[in-house]
Amino acid sequence: MMGNIKEDKQKIDVQQMINEKKSTQNNLKIIEKIVPVFLFLCAALSILTTVGILFTLLRESITFFGEQGFFSFITGTKWNPWAGDFGVLPLITGTLQITVISILVALPIGLASAIFLSEYASDKVRRTIKPTLEVLAGVPTVVYGYFAVSFVTPILRSIFPEIGIFNALSAGLVVGIMIVPMIASLSEDAMNSVPTSLREGALALGSTRLEVALKVVVPAAFSGIVAATVLAISRAIGETMIVTIAAGASPNLTFDPLVSIQTLTAFIVQGIKGDTTFGSMIYYSVYAVGMTLFVFTLAMNLLSQYIARKFREEY
């Protein structure tokens, strides 16, 4: 009924053909076995990267601590490696200053943006603003560095005439702008995952949008917001180019945002960039500072993940 004459003349038996082809498919069987091994090796590379980072940082910093002492490194208040002073505290306060300033900028702006996008904006507005905001996260940091010295610092100088050409304030403000999209985006995700029924419940009781946002949504999304902030702190700690260009290279143990400072990251650039020879004490000190930086950022990342995980269990 369904076949036609032409076909009946040259009948083909597909299963038989498949059987005949089986021997030629044997090559495939070998590939079938090799491919997962190759894929696994690639996946293992990510573990090797972590091992490599830990190994390099540990090996060189242990050499450093063997020479200079671990205790004097973490409690020393003077950092001048070229004169033999290896007290890391000025670099840590420098990093801390940048982090605090940037979070003071980014948290209110980021949180307000997140509340606006999640609670007030229409879908269309959200879909325009959110990607545009994320462009900020894609701007290379060297461009932000240029923006800080060539635009922000001159403006600050007209407000605070005594401010240094290089200063923590300018760098901190710009780092803050850089991490706004991170806080805004992640906080908005957290707010979006608050069930609509909670909002509707509060609105039905006669609450305004503002009351819903501040009394219902933000508390419910609180741990998500905290996780986003902690992740942003980690980014600010690790940020290198903006502080290298705009905050200077003077390791001062100070909390005055108007003077030049040096962060952990900025020292690594300075220490490596010069004619630092392999195996010199400055070379090793770079790794000790790198290790310090790595510990701080890793702690922040793990903390953020921990908070986010707890948050997920609540729903």
Partner: peptide, 28 residues
Amino acid sequence: RFIQVNISNLAGVPSIVYGLLGLTFFVY
């Protein structure tokens, strides 16, 4: 699970630390 967690942690390592890895491992 370890590989997965490790990947998300690697995403948070500051880029300059990768530089140090590259310096010791690839360059030297």
